[in-house]
Nucleic acid binder design. Structure first.
Lengths: 161, 161
DNA sequence: ATTGTAATGTAATAATATTACAATTTTATA
DNA sequence: TATAAAATTGTAATATTATTACATTACAAT
């Protein structure tokens, strides 16, 4: 598998096609199980997000999708994103105002998002113990926890090497 | 101390004036120590942020500040915010695109921001052990950690009661 | 006093996200 | 199968958040 490399868009070696297949397969299953409709637009937006290992912005998605479907408008993308996030298939990276696919959508969502500030790749790592501790800590001061935003910026192993 | 209460702006009892004095005093110290200039604009913006226990948006700040200084433009606010964040006096709440004053600016910044989704108050709680664990965890997979975004949404004790 | 640096003024615009309402498609069921 | 209800998509407009570029002023160091 070859990768296009430039200063702004570094792709580390990775079997991209299979992780896309895997993600879409899981998405189908999750939606079927939850009685949700993974329509062509929604499926395609998910595909586009999966195809990038960087967090991708709504208007980047729009640029790509609009080339395939001239009717697409900002709200087309945001609706699809809302659906995909609601379904747990996509996460918003708040510190980037951008979106990543959730590669373990079928199970828990107690993860930290690792963001490389050099190559801009972003990926999730399980962090359930962190959630447990923070939730416990917050309950100890009578704060009822609902949703945790947990994003770590740094330099990934590929870029450090 | 009396408080104005409405459905959108709940103020829990709190000695606001003293925490404002305290924050400004610390800000002066921090800036002096670091050789930074807390100009009137910067000081006033910090004051406005401190005066709210909710995270406050840049354009909310602009509305208030513009009434006092008709020359104020968006970039006036963003410059002051950049300075205050750089100085460690203010934090951006990424999940709200809004800003809070750091009430322990003189010491460490390893905290979690607790955001009440009912009254919208936001405050920091020390979470150093969480930082240590996450940093250790990320290093164990050769990810070099630089900056952590840690924000917990939920219901505060006042609102739960 | 002079000069370099930092801060502010001013205008324009970019980037991100939402609202409102109409049209169409899908689903459920009469 | 006809049809009503619900969900999805189309379309336009606009709101919200943030930045860039360049001119001017104030400050600090010599």
């Amino acid at each position: 598998m070859t990768h296009v490399i430039d200063s702004k868009t570094i792709q580390h070696p990775h079997n991209h096609k299979s992780c896309l297949q895997q993600a879409l397969h899981v998405a189908e299953q999750v939606c079927h199980q939850k009685g949700l409709r993974l329509t062509p637009i929604r499926r395609r937006i998910l595909e586009l997000i999966c195809t990038s290992h960087k967090a991708i912005g709504a208007y980047e998605l729009l640029d790509i999708f609009h080339a395939e479907d001239a009717k697409a408008k900002p709200v087309t993308i945001y609706r699809a994103l809302d659906f995909l996030m609601e379904a747990g298939l996509v996460h918003k990276v708040e510190s980037l105002n951008a979106f990543i696919a959730c590669l373990h959508a079928e199970s828990q969502h107690k993860s930290v998002i690792l963001i490389c500030t050099q190559c801009h790749n972003a990926y999730e790592m399980d962090a359930e113990p962190i959630y447990e501790q923070l939730f416990a800590l917050s309950k100890s001061i009578q704060f009822t926890p609902h949703y945790l935003t947990l994003e770590l910026q740094g330099i990934c192993s590929h870029c450090a090497a």
